[in-house]
């Protein structure tokens, strides 16, 4: 470096690029984030465009064409008409897979949204106010943690009856605990910082402080938990559907597809492998994205 560049560095006080620019740079160099985002976007597009890109109708049963294997099998029955074959009722498997992505994403997103609102509200209030509020919230969290999620969900669904809406609400109301725990401790840390005291001294109202001073500094934690809980909800839905208490047939849920195929695992293994792999890819991509967001937004926490 010559003396000229030294001089310019001395005169420009902002040697560092803006936080936004630095984050963009970190995003594009983080392979986990990029892979996760790519797969998730692909699945999302698959779900969104299902009516246009599907080869058939998810509910059309053609019993004469049942159990056609996917095209990569050696069987003579394999045909490009059904690239992923058909199930035991002769429904096009690829179509059902595409429509199934809709249900998985809908449930994951819906349950995450409900649990996120509940958990964040409780956690932020407990962390900010402390004292009695904190005690009450802690009690609610402990109560919630003492309930086994799958058993409670099974019980509720078997009493109320099963539908997509019921599953979303039951899961949403059951998995907010991690949001509450993490948001509580994140808020406690931020609340102790001087800029919050300064906002109080400026006469800011409490909602304003929570929204403009506290929330922006805990959103990175929030996003990470949100991705984890979304994956969690998707897996729980699959489990419920597998047990026959989630989404009801003939809806094409991935969990239900696995459940319907379990009798044929030895003779037609693709029936269980394909939705299983799809579920695996979805959950993995969400988790990769979550880890990526954590690394990208809080570089000081790495290493």
């Amino acid at each position: 470096m010559t003396i000229d560049t030294v001089k310019t560095q001395v005169t420009t006080d902002s040697q560092e690029p803006s936080p936004g620019a630095m984050m963009r740079k970190r995003i594009f160099t983080h392979w986990g984030f990029m892979i996760g985002a790519f797969v998730l976007i692909a699945i999302f597009l698959m779900a969104l465009l299902a009516p246009y890109i599907s080869p058939g109708d998810p509910f059309d049963q053609v019993l004469s064409r049942k159990l056609i294997p996917p095209i990569w099998s050696d069987s003579a029955k394999a045909t490009w008409e059904h690239p992923l074959g058909t199930d035991h009722l002769g429904r096009d498997y690829m179509t059902r897979l595409f429509y199934g992505a809709r249900i998985s994403l809908l449930i994951g997103f819906g349950a995450m949204l409900i649990s996120g609102v509940i958990g964040t509200t409780l956690g932020v209030l407990a962390g900010y106010y402390g004292g009695r509020v904190d005690m009450v919230v802690n009690f609610i969290i402990t109560t919630r943690l003492s309930m086994p999620v799958v058993l409670v969900a099974l019980a509720v669904v078997s009493i109320v009856g099963s539908s997509l809406t019921v599953v979303i609400w039951v899961l949403g109301l059951l998995i907010w605990d991690r949001f509450a725990v993490v948001m509580r401790s994140a808020t406690q840390q931020v609340r102790a910082l001087d800029f919050v005291t300064s906002a109080q001294a400026l006469g800011c109202s409490t909602p304003r402080i929570l929204l403009t001073e506290v929330m922006p500094n805990i959103t990175n934690h929030l996003i990470v938990i949100a991705t984890l809980e979304m994956a969690h909800a998707i897996l729980l839905e699959a489990a419920l559907s597998f047990l026959g208490l989630g989404v009801q047939p003939p809806e094409p849920s991935w969990g239900l597809m696995i459940s319907e195929a379990k009798g044929m695992i030895f003779f037609d293994p693709w029936l269980i492998t394909i939705p299983g792999l799809a579920l695996f890819a979805l959950v993995l991509s969400i988790n990769l994205l979550g880890d990526g967001i954590r690394d990208v937004t809080a570089p000081e926490n790495r290493n």
Binding site: M1, I3, T5, V6, K7, Q9, V10, D13
Partner: peptide
Amino acid sequence: GIVPSLVGHMSGCHFASRCPQAHEGCE
């Protein structure tokens, strides 16, 4: 003034940019 960045090689006196008595030879 502020402390110069220590990334890379710097020739001359490190304090030259903030020094009231600096002259050309210092750089």
